[in-house]
Design a binder for these strands. Structure first.
Length: 922
RNA sequence: GCUCAGAUGGCGGAAUUGGUAGACGCGCUGGACUCAAACUCCAGUGUCCUCAACAGACGUGCGGGUUCGAUUCCCGCUCUGAGUACCA
């Protein structure tokens, strides 16, 4: 009976579906374990061989945890809202729901073939009204809460209103857009419109005029993480800065908690680093400068208050309020010209031309509170309006950007730090944070550290500033001028936003006739008929961004069919949060921040019991393509084999990897591949055409896409699973090379043969030998260690070695083979199920327990002690492992090999380490 | 520029973390089986010393160091990849 993977895999996939083998429910008698994959966006191209890598790893871990007695939640779903479906709709008029549905069906079909143990009863789709009801619901909660900095927590807006009515806002310490101080009386005297406008500044989901990334080509605004190098991440379209009225989420309020949370997370340091940099905490001080002949006070943020005596000018961001306040009439014209220039510059230009120094003098002078000197105030685009106060004190001697500016506009450069060596300021600034203060009045001779401390305290004492922490993290812009996304549960009355009643949820996405933004520049929902509330108020035209639906989906899996709550308390108390989360590192600054924020917010409300959503995170690497090339001799239709190409002038041409085997081109297939190659001629070596190759991104244009369906057709799902793991460490990027798959396929056939006596399945019930037990226990120990440490790649060799050894021992004993089948079941579930059932078991191997290994079977009676001289192994000596150090030493000295290796030298020392290596030092 | 990760045969990679470097697989070479092919099996395969050795030397990007012993730890470089970027 040959190993017929096709029948076996079909049979067990059907069986799992019929028996609902992987359906889970709350079971308090068992410990829970929640394994989650980042759910995919179902694109039209389907899965390539790189996509399932993480799913296979998480599936192995899930299956292993089940065998270890855990109740495992392992769900899957679809992040179904997104741009590609909508772009396709704009081009073809096809409703995005239809293409999305089609793509999901295709994804599901491909996923099923790989044999995952997902509980599909819990599937979620972000575009399903039953699902996005809870996305809208969460938004309403964010609208109805504000962030109290004193307790670092979200609190109901109703409480805030109560405080306003009692004592105004003077004692409120909130994360807030703008706050003018008012009393209780003033509050009560305000109209509803005025009150609502003020409350908008406090809400966690708020509507405000903000500088946004506007992408004209996509016709929508984008969040910071959706923009890279001034281009949109999706589509690479130019992005510009624009002031627009948009919904935002007050993510920045949670900056400190997002940082503190890392302490209890098992995430890779590099990923934590990426998030830390993105949050960008910096500790410094606000310092207020008086302005000469003006009432305006100029506040700057600095991390280097120690350098205050070196300030030789101030710089304002062009968009800053200060720019209007501090521009003098004499400079008006010049400033206007400059502001015009800045406004015209795209974000991309600004970023790519960082070295170009521009600026204009405002006409005003600030007074340095420590030297009382008047220092000129400039305006320049190198200062950002969105960070700190939008104004800086410039210390050209010790900041390279200020230095460049001072050089260009010939402003004084005053050194205030001396590092013991002569600091040369003729070419560059000295930015380091060590040395002694000079030219700095009262703080002369202090160290930088002391000076920072002293000035900060002094500023505080004089009431001209205070120490402050700034974060780079911005609030998340939450509006998108697109169709295919969640509608906001928002209507407008008197130009102010109000939330729909929760009983009206979900507010379903309306049908429209065209998916392009309207000619008037309004979002597509502007076309929807009757897009208003029952009492005639207009509904919001924008839709929510991609990250809205993906921010809390892990909670919905816990209780996916609950129509009354996002997640029931019972389900949440049991499943708590995700124990293991697998996905790409590209979500570090997007989804993984938003999800943490969203979850913390729900935690503040008491909806969820854990503050952090994902306890352990693993970022699987990308599988790259391995492209093949042919070499066309320039000006001909002749192609030369790799080894001979240097003899000709050639052009490198990508060739479909599917017509290349072991880097040898199928020349006939090449001729029929594309019409232009029909008459191709070849210069062969050894009768073969050898192709060149390179590792590149897997993509259609490189003709290097490998489809998992083809691999499964040819080798089976178990082989695909094993091979994907075998390729290399889970977290590493690695190229796909189909050549190597033969090895693991061969292993499965060999493993199968262990159970076969000719054509019949047979195992013996004989007692295993010591040797066989050793193979078993060694293998089980290794597999357990590997899975616990996520080094799945090294498990495959362990299985191969085990199989080879048992094959050599001609071992077909049940006592040995049965536990190994269980250990293999996580990796290759189909073949394991088949053998398990042939072994006479009536229930799934999923119900089995992971085998226990014992150290006693692993120790040998006699051990070949490697004897090394100065660290180099020279010979081996067989002795019992139980020998004492004294016995070993005696035996080594008595060994006949010693004399030769000592070569007349004396033994200075003999080191016998617990790992049983003897090192003789001569 | 800053931060992080990495560099091991022809290729992918192993070495459970300071203890026999190159496991395992691919590829390659030779052999067995076969009329032949496929399948399967066996042997060899880091480099160098004119062949072989169960003889030796050298070998984990480069240069130093610590150690009885370093792919592993420390210092200084080079290169590659990723993140981020006028964040004051």
């Amino acid at each position: 009976m040959e190993y017929n993977f096709k029948d076996i895999e079909q049979k067990w996939q059907d069986n799992w579906r019929e028996q609902q083998t992987y359906k889970v429910s709350v079971d308090t008698s068992k410990p829970k374990f929640y394994v989650l994959d980042m759910f995919p966006y179902p694109s039209g191209a389907g899965l390539h061989v790189g996509h399932p890598l993480g799913y296979i790893a998480s599936d192995i871990y899930s299956r292993y945890k089940r065998l270890k007695g855990f109740n495992v939640l392992h769900p899957m779903g679809y992040d179904a809202y997104g741009l590609p479906a909508e772009q396709y709709a704009i081009q073809t008029g096809q409703h995005p729901a239809i293409t999305t549905e089609k793509n999901i069906a295709r994804y599901r079909e491909q996923l099923d073939k790989i044999g995952f143990s997902f509980d599909w009863h819990r599937e979620v789709r972000t575009c399903d009204p039953k699902y996005y009801k809870w996305t809208q619901w969460a938004f309403i909660q964010m609208f109805n809460h504000w962030f109290n900095k004193d307790v670092q927590k979200a609190e109901p807006i109703s409480q805030l209103v109560a405080t306003f009515e009692k004592e105004g806002n003077q004692h409120i310490n909130a994360s807030c857009s703008e706050a003018e101080v008012f009393t209780a009386e003033e509050w009560k005297a305000m109209s509803e419109k005025e009150q609502q406008s003020i409350l908008l500044n406090y809400r966690i989901a708020y509507l405000a005029d903000t500088m946004v990334n506007w992408c004209p080509k996509l016709g929508t605004v984008l969040a910071n993480d959706e923009v890279k190098d001034g281009l949109s991440v999706r589509g690479g379209c130019p992005v510009e800065q624009k002031n627009m009225r948009q919904w935002s989420l007050r993510v920045s309020a949670y900056a400190q908690r997002l940082l503190d949370g890392f302490d209890n997370l098992e995430w890779s340091d590099s990923l934590k680093d990426i998030q830390r940099n993105w949050i960008g905490r910096s500790q410094g001080a606000d310092i207020t400068f008086d302005v000469k002949d003006s009432d305006v006070q100029l506040t700057v943020f600095t991390t280097r208050p120690d350098t205050i005596h070196g300030v030789s000018f101030m710089v304002l961001a062009p968009e800053s309020e200060y720019t209007k306040q501090l521009s003098t009439p004499e400079q008006e014209k010049e400033i206007a010209t400059y502001l015009e220039y800045v406004a015209k510059r795209t974000e991309r230009e600004r970023q790519s031309e960082v070295k170009v120094v521009t600026g204009v003098f405002s006409g005003s002078y600030a007074i340095n509170p420590f030297t009382n000197e008047a220092i000129p105030v400039w305006i320049s685009e190198y200062v950002l309006s969105g960070y700190g106060t939008g104004a800086i004190m410039a210390v050209p001697a010790h900041d390279s950007r200020d230095y460049a500016f001072a050089r260009k506009f010939e402003l004084p450069i005053i050194p205030v730090i001396d590092n013991g060596q002569a600091i040369d300021l003729s070419e560059s600034s000295y930015d380091a944070k060590d040395g002694k203060m000079i030219n700095s009045g009262i703080i002369n001779d202090m160290s930088v550290k002391e000076a920072i401390q002293f000035i900060a305290e002094e500023v505080d004492k004089r009431g001209i500033g205070s120490s402050k922490i700034n974060y780079r993290l911005r609030d998340a812009i939450f509006s998108r001028q697109r169709y295919w996304g969640e509608p906001f549960p928002v209507y407008y009355k008197d130009e102010l936003p109000y939330m729909l009643d929760e009983s009206k949820l979900p507010l379903e996405l309306p049908e429209i006739d065209k998916y392009l933004p309207t000619e008037t520049g309004e979002p597509p929902l502007g076309r929807a008929k009757n897009w208003q509330t029952e009492d005639g108020f207009s509904l919001e035209f924008n839709t929510m961004p991609g990250f809205a639906g993906s921010s809390a989906y892990y909670l919905r899996y816990m209780d996916p069919h609950n129509e009354n709550e996002l997640v029931s308390k019972e389900a949440n108390d049991y499943w708590e949060n995700v124990d293991l989360y697998l996905g790409g590192a590209e979500h570090a600054t997007g989804h993984l921040i938003y999800s943490r924020f969203w979850n913390m917010f729900l935690y503040d409300l008491g909806i969820v019991c854990q503050e952090e959503p994902f306890k352990k995170l693993i970022n699987q690497g990308m599988i790259q393509g391995r492209s093949n090339f042919v070499y066309r001799i320039v000006g001909s239709n002749t192609y030369v084999s790799l080894g001979l190409k240097d003899q000709h002038e050639t052009t490198e041409i990508h060739v479909d990897v599917n017509i290349v085997h072991n880097d040898v081109l199928d020349t006939e297939a090449f001729r029929t591949w594309m019409p232009e190659y029909a008459n191709a001629e070849f210069i062969l070596e050894d009768g073969k055409y050898t192709c060149g190759w390179a590792v590149e991104k897997m993509s259609k244009s490189m003709f290097n896409v490998v489809n998992p369906d083809n691999i499964i057709e040819q080798y089976g799902a178990d082989t695909l699973r094993l091979y994907e793991m075998f390729l290399g460490p889970l977290e590493a990027h690695k190229p796909w090379d189909t050549q190597g798959i033969e090895g693991v396929c061969k292993f499965l056939r060999k493993f199968w043969r262990l159970f076969m006596n000719g054509e019949t399945f047979s195992v013996s019930d004989d007692e295993p030998t010591k040797e066989e037990l050793k193979v078993l226990h060694k293998t089980v120990k290794k597999i357990e260690y590997d899975i616990e440490n996520f080094s799945f790649n090294t498990s495959i060799p362990a299985f191969m070695i085990c199989t080879n050894e048992l094959s050599t021992l001609k071992c077909n004993k049940r006592a040995i083979l049965e536990p190994i089948v269980i250990a293999l079941a996580s990796y290759a579930p189909h073949i394991a199920e088949e053998i398990w059932s042939l072994l006479g078991h009536k229930t799934s191997v999923t119900m089995a327990s992971f085998p226990q290994w014992e150290e006693k079977y692993l120790v040998e009676d006699n051990f070949e002690y490697p004897i090394s001289f100065n660290g180099k192994v020279r010979f081996k000596l067989s002795m019992p492992l139980t020998a004492t150090n004294a016995e070993i030493e005696k035996a080594v000295k008595a060994s006949p090999d010693m004399e030769r290796w000592l070569d007349g030298k004396d033994i200075r020392k003999m080191i016998i380490v617990p790992k049983k290596i003897v090192n003789v030092v001569v």
